[in-house]
Design a protein around this nucleic acid. Sequence first.
RNA 1: GGCGGCAUAGCCAAGUGGUAAGGCAGAGGUCUGCAACACCUUCACCACCAGUUCAAAUCUGGUUGUCGCCU
Length: 314
Amino acid sequence: MKIILIAGPTATGKTEVSVKLAHKINAEIISMDSMQVYKGLDIGTAKANEQEMDGIKHYMIDVLDPTENCSVAWFKSTVKDLISDISARGKIPILVGGTGFYINAVLFDTNFDEQITTDYKAEFTAFYYDYGKEQLFAKLQDVDPESASTIHPNNVKRVIRALEFFSQNGFPISKHNKEEKYKRFDNISPYDYTFFALNMSRDTLYSRINRRVDLMVDNGLFHEVEKLFNRGLDENLAALQGIGYKELFPFFKGQLSKDEVIDILKRNTRRFAKRQITWFNHQSNPIFIEVDELGFNSEKIANTIIELSNLRKF
RNA sequence: GGCGGCAUAGCCAAGUGGUAAGGCAGAGGUCUGCAACACCUUCACCACCAGUUCAAAUCUGGUUGUCGCCU
C-alpha cells in the first residue's frame, strides 16, 4: 500500500500543503497529531477548519474527549485500519502531522502486543513516592541493566515504564526496543511510503511561531481554554498537557498575567519545534523540504512532493 | 558644572585578593503504550587603560558609559 507522509515541526504549513496535495492525487488525510484527536482543542492545536480542509476527508481529528487518554498503541492500530480502508477505496492516504513517535509507530508497525493485565505502573509509582528515584532506578539496574544504561535515573517516567514492561512480560524492554528499532534501520515497513518533513531556517520558524501564537490569541484561544478550565478537569489529563492549554491555566487561576502566559506559550512552542526537528533528524529519516526556499508556495511544495514520490501517473 | 552609586554571558544576578554560583533565554541530544510527555548535556578570560601583588572580577589611579541627587 502506498502512503505519503508529511511531517515537520509546528507552523511549517503542513495543513495547507497536504490539502493541496490531496486534491492533486485523489487522496485523503490522516492526522498524525497527538492533540488534534481531542474534541474542544481547536485553536491551540491549529486544527484545520472546514474551509481549510477544502472538501478533503480528514481522519483522527476530534475522535476523543479530553477526559480520555490517547496512546500510541491505540493510535497506531486505528490508523492502520484507516490506511487499509482508504487504500481499498482506491485513494492514497496522506499522513500529516508532527507527532514523530506516532508516525514511526505506524510506519514501522511497532509491536504493541503487550497486554497490560496488572497495574504495575501504580505499584512502581507508589514505590517511587516511598523510596525515591535512586531506589527505583536500582530496581531497573537489577532486572534490565541495558535499559538502565540508556535511561537517566531522573527520568522516572521511563524508568517506571521499563519496570512495568519487565514485570508484565518477563523480559526487558531493551530487548523489545532493539527489535523494533532494527525495523527502522533496515527500513522494514508494511507500507510503500515516501516520507517528507517540511522545514525552514530556525529564525524564520521561530518568528512564524511567535506570530502564530498572537494570531491564536486573536482568534479566541483564551476563550477556548477558559471553557476547558471551567469544566474543572484533572489537569494531569494528557489533553490538558497540550501546548497552548497548560500554559494558560495559570492565567485563569490568577497566578500570571496575560502577557506572561503568552510569552511562556511562545517559548514552549519554540522548544517543542526544536524537539520535533531533533526527532526527525535522528529518530526517522524523512526527505526534508525547505519551504522557505520554495517561497512558502504550497502549490510548488505539493508539486515537489509529487515529483519526489514518483506520483506523476496521477 | 558638582557630588554619589553602578559597570560580571543575550537578559537577570551572586561573588571584596587565589584563577567566575544560580536562574532565564539560546544551542545540542535521548526517546518505542501518558510523546505538544519525560529526561540529559552545554554556554563568560568579569567596560577599557595603567598600577599594587607571587596572585585582581575583587585593591589604587585614570578613561568611557550609565543611573540618581544637587546647582
